[in-house]
């Protein structure tokens, strides 16, 4: 059966549903947000349609610059750590028996069912002085007395890595399963130790997958706003936390929208830059 090119308007009908969904759930909300970001803020919860740049102007300060920089740095660190741990782990997972794989994947999927709130509270307990893991270390004799490991950057980073890890593994898994197992064997017959072969061959052969995963985890981590609040000090609050503050607590929708638009643009720019660098290397 040959596919006919669409000729009449009705031939495009199958596209209507996805197009409508895209408009309804992405184009309209995002356009609204962009529009609101230019509205005039009325002190105390209202805004009036207008075209002002004040909201963006307020964002362009050293303070919010610092917050943005921190948010990006945190998201990048989470992405790098997640991929650095998940990649070898997933590789070994694909090499293990079907049974072991299923058990691990089920466990990982069940972590996905945990909400950010539960993860946050679980880690705040684990890092607490009164009930946390340091008590175990004391019991074993490795520490003199229990310590609080939060609030702090390490706590935020750990919990966010934990939260993003299942996504990372599940994104890497299909690519690693499909990977030709003889690639590493070939490297070994050519004189590479298994470890060297892994870094020389497996990692570069999956460069594009790794890039895509890094970007996905980065974007995912950028949106995290609960864990930095629960586990961090105010200087560890991400831009997402400040956006939530403005939108929910200060009722300052125009400013929140402006920050959100800025965050989206910066993320897109970073993703674009990454892809650009990636494709350059492909060509040479």
């Amino acid at each position: 059966m040959r596919r006919e090119p669409p000729r009449r308007i009705a031939d495009y009908a199958p596209l209507a549903f996805p197009a409508a969904m895209l408009v309804l759930f992405f184009v309209i909300p995002f356009s609204t947000m962009i529009a609101v970001s230019f509205f005039r803020r009325q002190q105390g919860g209202f805004y009036t349609p207008d075209f002002v740049l004040d909201n963006y102007g307020r964002f362009l300060s050293a303070f919010f610059g610092g917050v943005l920089g921190f948010s990006l740095m945190l998201a990048i660190m989470v992405a790098v750590i997640c991929v650095a741990i998940a990649f070898p782990f997933t590789y070994l997972l694909t090499k293990s028996s079907r049974r072991v794989q299923i058990v691990w994947l089920v466990c990982l999927l069940s972590i996905l069912s945990l909400s950010e709130v539960i993860i946050g509270f679980a880690w705040s307990t684990l890092f607490s002085r009164t009930a946390g893991i340091t008590n175990l270390l004391v019991a074993v004799g490795l520490m003199a007395e229990p310590q609080a490991l939060l609030p702090g950057f390490g706590a935020v980073l750990t919990a966010m890595t934990y939260q993003a890890m299942p996504y990372t593994i599940l994104v890497l898994y299909p690519a690693l399963v499909r990977l030709d197992p003889t690639l590493l064997e070939a490297a070994r017959t050519l004189g590479a130790s298994p470890l060297r072969g892994f870094f020389d061959i497996i990692v570069p052969a999956l460069r594009n997958t790794i890039m895509a995963t890094l970007i996905m985890v980065f974007v995912f981590a950028l949106g995290s706003y609960l864990l930095p609040q629960i586990l961090g000090r105010p200087q560890h609050w991400t831009l997402s936390v400040h956006i939530t503050d403005q939108a929910i607590y200060q009722s300052n929708m125009p400013f929140a929208a402006a920050m959100a638009v800025f965050l989206v643009l910066i993320s897109l720019a970073l993703v674009g830059l990454t892809l650009l660098v990636g494709s350059r290397r492909e060509v040479t």
Partner: peptide, 17 residues
């Protein structure tokens, strides 16, 4: 271990990098 045997091998999949 394989990497110390110095046997050249051609795989069915060829396994070109």
């Amino acid at each position: 271990p394989t990497h110390k045997r110095n046997f050249g091998m051609v795989f069915q999949s060829l396994a070109l990098f």
